[in-house]
Every structure is written in C-alpha cells, then in structure tokens.
Amino acid sequence: MIILYIITAVLVLLSFAVDFRKTLKAFRISLKRFLKISPAFGGMLILVSVAMYIFPEEFIADSLGSGSIWISTAAGSLIGSITLMPGFIAFPLCGVLRDYGVQYMVLSGFTTTLMMVGILSFPVEKACLGVKVAVVRNIISLVIALIVAVSTGIIYGEIAL
C-alpha cells in the first residue's frame, strides 16, 4: 500500500517537473474518469455491505466445513462468487478453516471464485466492459475456478478420479 503512494507521488512530481500543463490535464482526466464511474462504485459498496451482513464469517465457516467435499466446494464457490472480501480477511479465515480440517479443494473453490467472479462488483464491471462481456467473463471465470478447485482436490489426494 505504501509502495503505491510512493510510486504515485514520485511519478506525479516527475510529471510536474517535465510538463506542468500536461500533468494538470492528467489530473483532469483522473477526476473525470473517477466521477463518471463513482456511481458504480457506490452501488457496489451498498451491495457489499448488505452481503457482508447476510454472509458473515461464521456463516461462511459453517458452509465450508459441513457436508461432503463436493457440496462444500459448491457452497464455497457460490459464496465466493457472490461476496467480495479483501485477501487479508479471506486468507486468514481459510487458514483457520484448514486447521479445522476443511479440505484444500473447498478452500480453492472459495478463494478462486472470490478473486475471479464478481457478482457484487458487477456495477463496476458493467460500466467498464458492458453487460454482455461482463456476464460472459464471469461465467468463464466460474468454470476456470471450478477446474482449479477440482485439480487442487486431485493433487492433494482429497478426491479420487
């Protein structure tokens, strides 16, 4: 995070030093783009806040840890697709679940869909890519995530072919 600030600050200063007007123009573009897409970000925030209430961490832990490996993987992938959660919450949660005996295949399905499939970030995706591409991209991502999860299960010896 700090690296991002440093890089941005250095580049901005450098840009100002080379060409003042061009840098101002860059700021204008930044602001315009940001304002244009901010309603989508707002929509995403509202959806995320409601989803985090509906699917609290305890609920996720319960869904991933009960039932057969296939049902848990399906549940994990479903929850991962719907919710949006930063890595510093998701991975420690997965670490705890792993210690409680939840299989790697389930964790893989959950984390991979969490990262690749974004139902709640759909407002932002729609604004950037358009509805059709956004839908297709999410479906393909879900398929890839499931393939990754099953591969993980096979390699860890959790499921037999």
Partner: peptide, 18 residues
Amino acid sequence: MIKLLPCVFILIGLFEVW
C-alpha cells in the same frame, strides 16, 4: 477503497497523457 482509488485514478490520468 478510498485509500486505493485516488492513486489508481491519478496513475490512469498520467498513463493517458504520457
């Protein structure tokens, strides 16, 4: 988000002009 996005959009702006 507000910690990240300003930097991201400033970088996008710089990218656009340079």
